[in-house]
C-alpha cells in the first residue's frame, strides 16, 4: 500500500515536449512510472519518448485512461493548464512549475476543488511511492521502500529527510513535496489523514518552514486524529524576522508564523520535534524502536 499513487497509476505529462518536461518524464519512465502520453498543444498526433502526444488533456484522457497529470507548463500558462486538467476529469494534478502567479493558482485551485481534482504543488518536487511510481523531479534512487510516510514543504529537505530515514535502515511508503507557495494543493492535514489510513505506513515525517500557519493547523489535527508517531522539523529557527514591508499577512492568520511557535504547537500535540534536520533519521529510529 501507499497513498495517492502506485505502480498501476497512469500518468500524462502536460508540457511533455518542453525541455524540463522531456528530461523529467524520461527519468520517471526509467523509474518505472506508467507515463502513457503527454499534452503539448500543436503537437498532437506525434510521438515523444515512445508515447503519444495530444493537443488537449481531454483527448489524452479519453485515449489513455490516465488519472494523474504531471504539469511542467511554464508559469504564465500553468493556471490554464490546471484548469484544463480539472475540466478533463483528471483526478490528481502534480504541479512542478515554479513561479506561477498567485492569482492564477488561486483560481485554478478553487476550480479543481469544485471538480473534485486533487492537486499537489505548485513549486514542488512532486510525489513518489518508493520503488513503484515517481511523479516529479526527485532523485528516485534515495527512496527505498519501507514504512515511513513523508510530507515536506521544501524539495531538498524532502531528499535530506528520506535519505536519513533510509540510512537508518528504514524506508519510505510515499513521500510528498507539497510546495511552499502561498496557495498550494494537498497540505499536511489531508496527507496526514491518508498516511494514518494507510496500513503500511508506521510513522510519519513532517517537514515544515517558517511563514503561514499550515503547521499550526496540522498540530491541532494531529492531536485529534493521528495515532501514528510523527517526527517533525521546522526550518528557519535562525532566520531573521521578515524584512517585508507589510505584516498584514500575519494579521490574517493571527499567527506570526515563527519556527518557535510552530515547534511548540507540534510538541504540545505529541509530535517528536527535532531542532536540526540532521536528527530526523535518528529520531525515527528512536521512536520506532521504543
Amino acid at each position: 500500500m501507499s497513498i495517492l499513487i502506485d505502480k498501476n497509476t497512469k500518468v500524462i505529462v502536460q508540457g511533455f515536449t518542453g525541455k524540463e518536461g522531456s528530461f523529467h518524464a524520461e527519468q520517471c519512465l526509467a523509474y518505472g512510472t506508467k507515463i502513457v502520453g503527454g499534452v503539448t498543444p500543436g503537437k498532437g498526433g506525434t510521438e515523444h519518448l515512445g508515447q503519444p502526444v495530444f493537443d488537449t488533456v481531454r483527448e489524452a484522457v479519453v485515449a489513455t485512461g490516465a488519472t494523474v497529470s504531471m504539469v511542467f507548463v511554464p508559469p504564465a500558462f500553468v493556471g490554464d493548464a490546471v484548469l484544463e486538467a480539472a475540466d478533463a476529469g483528471i483526478e490528481l494534478a502534480v504541479i512542478i512549475t515554479e513561479g506561477s502567479p498567485v492569482r492564477d493558482m488561486q483560481r485554478a485551485k478553487a476550480y479543481a476543488v469544485k471538480k473534485g481534482m486533487k492537486t499537489i504543488g505548485p513549486n514542488c518536487p512532486g510525489i513518489i511511492t518508493a520503488e513503484e511510481c515517481k511523479i516529479g523531479i526527485m532523485p528516485g534512487s534515495i527512496f527505498k521502500k519501507g514504512n515511513i510516510g513523508l510530507i515536506s514543504k521544501s524539495g531538498t529537505l524532502t531528499y535530506e529527510g528520506a535519505n536519513q530515514v533510509c540510512n537508518e535502515g528504514f524506508g519510505i511508503t510515499t513521500a510528498v513535496g507539497i510546495g511552499g507557495d502561498p496557495i498550494i494543493g494537498l497540505s499536511y492535514i489531508q496527507l496526514l489523514g491518508m498516511f494514518e489510513a494507510d496500513p503500511e505506513t508506521e510513522a510519519i515525517v513532517m517537514i515544515g518552514e517558517i511563514g503561514g500557519d499550515l503547521e499550526i493547523q496540522a498540530a491541532k489535527y494531529i492531536k485529534e486524529h493521528i495515532k501514528k508517531p510523527v517526527v517533525a522539523f521546522i526550518a528557519g529557527q535562525s532566520a531573521p524576522k521578515g524584512k517585508r514591508m507589510g505584516h498584514a499577512g500575519a494579521i490574517v492568520s493571527g499567527s506570526a508564523g515563527t519556527a518557535a511557535e510552530k515547534m511548540e504547537a507540534l510538541s504540545n500535540a505529541g509530535v517528536h520535534v527535532v531542532k536540526s534536520p540532521a536528527e530526523i533519521g535518528t529520531k525515527i529510529a528512536e521512536v520506532l524502536k521504543k
Binding site: 531538498t156 528557519g236 529557527q237 536540526s276
Partner: peptide, 18 residues
C-alpha cells in the same frame, strides 16, 4: 552555500544547533 531554500534554512539551524 546550499541548494534549496528549505535545506538552506535547515543548514543555518544545524550550525546554530552545534
Amino acid at each position: 552555500m546550499v541548494n534549496g531554500a528549505g535545506l538552506a534554512m535547515g543548514t543555518m539551524d544545524t550550525i546554530n544547533h552545534v
